[in-house]
């Protein structure tokens, strides 16, 4: 079986993987990163969004073997041991209810702020178009991303 080495949230892992193993299953079941959930089969929901080499990707639409050599950041590593400004803002603005979409939503928002540190509300909505939430109606998510951007989350 092919072997891959990946760095997940600052820790290097070397594992044998079946080629068809999805990255999200690798993260959840091999690296123990269960903070990243799976919500669909078709890249629509975005719950599984992580950062791969600094940009957002949907870890259910990638093979683990394709991540060989990559640096991956999940929701569990985003705050570097503390809370990232987005995590704080999601709490402060009540931007989550059941919380299932939240890891992906925050990772997508982090990517948005990376490329656009001070987005308008419309730009926030556009930036999160690949992440579905069934609880919040998105209103407080937009507020939270705004709040984080004002707090300088991108830096």
């Amino acid at each position: 079986m092919p072997k891959i080495t990946v760095n997940v949230d600052g820790v290097a892992y070397t594992d044998e993987v079946e080629p068809r193993l999805l990255l999200v299953h690798y993260l959840r079941e091999r690296a123990g990163k269960t903070g990243t959930p799976v919500g669909c089969d078709t890249t629509n929901c975005g719950a599984c969004t992580v950062q791969l080499n600094g940009v957002s990707v949907k870890s259910c639409a990638m093979l683990a073997i394709q991540a060989d050599g990559a640096e991956i950041t999940t929701i569990e590593g985003l705050g570097n041991g503390g809370w990232h400004p987005l995590q704080r803002a999601f709490n402060e603005e009540h931007a989550l209810q059941c919380g299932y979409c939240t890891p992906g939503m925050i990772m997508a928002a982090a990517d948005l702020l990376r490329t656009n540190p001070h987005p308008t509300n419309d730009e926030i909505r556009q930036g999160l178009e690949g992440n579905l939430c069934r609880c919040t109606g998105y209103q407080n998510i937009v507020r939270a991303v705004r709040r984080a951007s004002e707090a300088g989350a991108a830096t």
Binding site: G35, P37, I75, Q87, F90
Partner: peptide, 17 residues
């Protein structure tokens, strides 16, 4: 603000899966 969020925003959740 919600107590639940501490685990939900950090990925320390306990989903059945």
């Amino acid at each position: 603000t919600r107590k639940e969020d501490a685990r939900l925003v950090t990925g320390q959740t306990n989903w059945t899966d």
